[in-house]
């Protein structure tokens, strides 16, 4: 074990924290934006659409993240150049930032996961809350914004934390499609001296720190939520 190199690899891995975090947080944000309406539609009494979405979510959750990423990668490599040419744009797949492709795959996964979270949180708000809002003369949109959504935060927090941590860890899979994230940053540092064990340990330590940080932030948020809603 070469501790001097471990420190070098640790710095190389830490330098790529922004890449890993954006790979996790952009899909996470997109997952919230798309997942919430999807969950609302799934709870609605619209015909067919809720079942289609439920089926879609089940399908996505059945596909491993790495498989999704590779499919997106192949799709992009086969269609991107032709598509850009037809639009008259000079961009090519070779120059395309591959983290966009990995991020797109992670977004699909995050959307399905967040949809499930919001569905669970919606189910945690009792029907009587809807009735009370209706009795108070609120419209559907007002009920959602002022009554239902605020009460969904507390039950959604623990699972949301799990998904964000899972996304940070899944972002490491992007290193398999040549994205330079925390994992690849560390491995590249070891390319000259073959000290891969130190490199992987360094990457692991960085991921561990990131996940612990996220978990602690969520724990604080949960405490704050519990205090606010404690009557």
């Amino acid at each position: 074990m070469d501790f001097a190199f471990l420190w070098t690899a640790l710095q190389a891995a830490a330098a790529r924290i922004p890449a890993t975090l954006s790979l996790a947080f952009v899909p996470f944000a997109a997952g919230i934006l798309v997942g919430l309406p999807t969950a609302l539609v799934r709870r609605s009494s619209l015909p067919v659409l809720p079942n289609v979405l439920a089926g879609l979510v089940a399908l996505i959750k059945g596909i491993p993240v790495v498989l999704m990423m590779l499919v997106f990668f192949v799709l992009a490599s086969e269609t991107f150049d032709g598509f850009m040419q037809s639009l008259g744009l000079p961009w090519t797949f070779r120059e395309l930032d591959k983290s966009l492709v990995a991020g797109a795959a992670l977004t699909v996964y995050a959307t399905a996961a967040m949809c499930e979270v919001f569905r669970g949180a919606l189910a945690a708000v009792p029907q009587s809350q809807y009735d009370a809002a209706y009795a108070a003369g609120l419209t559907g949109a007002q009920t959602l914004r002022r009554i239902i959504l605020p009460q969904m935060v507390a039950p959604a927090l623990p699972m949301t934390c799990n998904i964000l941590v899972a996304l940070v860890k899944s972002a490491a899979i992007a290193s398999l499609v040549s994205v330079v994230d925390v994992m690849n940053g560390a491995v590249i540092a070891a390319a000259g001296n073959y000290r891969f064990l130190e490199a992987y340990i360094a990457a692991a330590l960085v991921y561990w720190a990131l996940c612990l940080l996220i978990e602690n932030i969520f724990r604080l948020a949960e405490k704050k939520c519990a205090r606010r809603f404690a009557v």
Partner: peptide, 17 residues
């Protein structure tokens, strides 16, 4: 540690370590 690190990284740590 096992819950806070990607299984991909764990695999290589075990393989080399």
């Amino acid at each position: 540690f096992l819950r806070g690190t990607p299984v991909l990284v764990q695999m290589f740590v075990v393989y080399y370590g």
